[in-house]
Design a protein around this nucleic acid. Structure first.
Length: 277
DNA sequence: CTCAATGACATTCCCTCCCC
DNA sequence: GGGGAGGGAATGTCATTGAG
């Protein structure tokens, strides 16, 4: 990364979308975990993605523009007026909505760790339907995370809304190619659902390659064991109303209160799921 | 037929960030 | 600082269903 020139060099770490700082920088040669949070503003000369021009700081230290930028960053770093912080802290300083989006990912962490699944977030999937990458058994799975919400008209059941935004147009269904698995978690964090893409296609909850539906979204009804039991009781008592709940989603329920903590079920679902190379 | 529970959507709301 | 955009959650709507 350093080409040995006398030019001042900085190390740059990108943060995630929604973080207060766009990047964190540190002079090369500093090993201490002390970084300067930096917000990047776009300028006309660069192409759409304002952040990536920082790569030039690495690649072409001799160039006047970026190099002087690196120099300014170094000066800022040395200035006590600018607070430095650990990289973890800078990356964690995110807006509340972004953190909420992360909640589902965090909720899965213990289970995935127990199951020997490696979790990655890759920058190339930012702003795409892929929220995380799971590695397991030599396979790479693209994951879409969703948190389930309690459905107000239906006591005890939750639902996951499946709709992706499409620019400034109305939301639309996800596409078969968007991800490999849908990982849904309930707010209580005891129950997890993991749906292989093939199942979602088969249930017409996402668009498959041979079928394109125009509706703006779909939903998955989730019944915990308790909610399912209550529902079956109600149906047995022949309550008014004919609709019979469909518990198909429970095939993909992972209960962390199970003897093995749900690891076996998780492995079974991953085993059956498609994956990306 | 009538009614209301259900579930699949559709719409609104809300928060944050960006940019002028 | 405020208006607009965007993303996601919360809430609303309505066709369907089957018992009474």
């Amino acid at each position: 990364m350093c080409d040995g020139s006398s030019e001042a060099m900085v190390e740059v770490q990108r943060t995630w979308e929604g973080a207060h700082a766009d990047v964190a920088v540190r002079p090369l040669g500093v090993d201490e975990d002390l970084w300067l949070p930096v917000q990047v503003k776009s300028c006309k000369e660069q192409n759409s993605n304002g952040c990536w021009h920082f790569n030039w700081v690495h690649k072409y230290p001799g160039m006047p523009g970026p190099a002087s930028l690196a120099h300014k960053l170094l000066l800022a770093y040395e200035d006590t007026f600018f607070a430095k912080d650990s990289l973890d802290n800078i990356i964690l300083q995110r807006s509340e909505t972004s953190q909420k989006g992360e909640a589902s990912i965090a909720a899965w962490a213990p289970l995935l760790s127990a199951a020997g699944v490696e979790v990655h977030q890759e920058l190339i999937y930012e702003m795409t339907p892929v929220d995380a990458i799971w590695w397991w058994n030599g396979k790479r799975f693209l994951i879409q995370h969703k948190t389930a919400i309690l459905h107000h008209v239906n006591n005890g059941s939750h639902l996951v809304i499946l709709q992706k935004s499409a620019g400034n147009k109305a939301t639309q269904l996800y596409d078969e190619a968007d991800f490999d698995l849908l990982a849904a978690s309930l707010p209580e964090n005891h129950h997890f659902y993991l749906f292989p893409m093939a199942v979602l296609v088969q249930r017409r909850l996402v668009n498959g390659h041979r079928e394109r539906r125009q509706c703006t979204g779909s939903a998955v009804m989730l019944w915990t064991r308790e909610a399912e039991a209550m529902q079956r009781l109600k149906e047995a008592k022949r309550c008014r109303g004919g609709g019979r709940a469909d518990f198909w989603a429970n095939e993909y329920l992972i209960d962390t209160h199970a003897a093995d903590g749900g690891v076996g079920r998780l492995h079974a679902i991953l085993e059956s799921a498609g994956y990306s190379t």
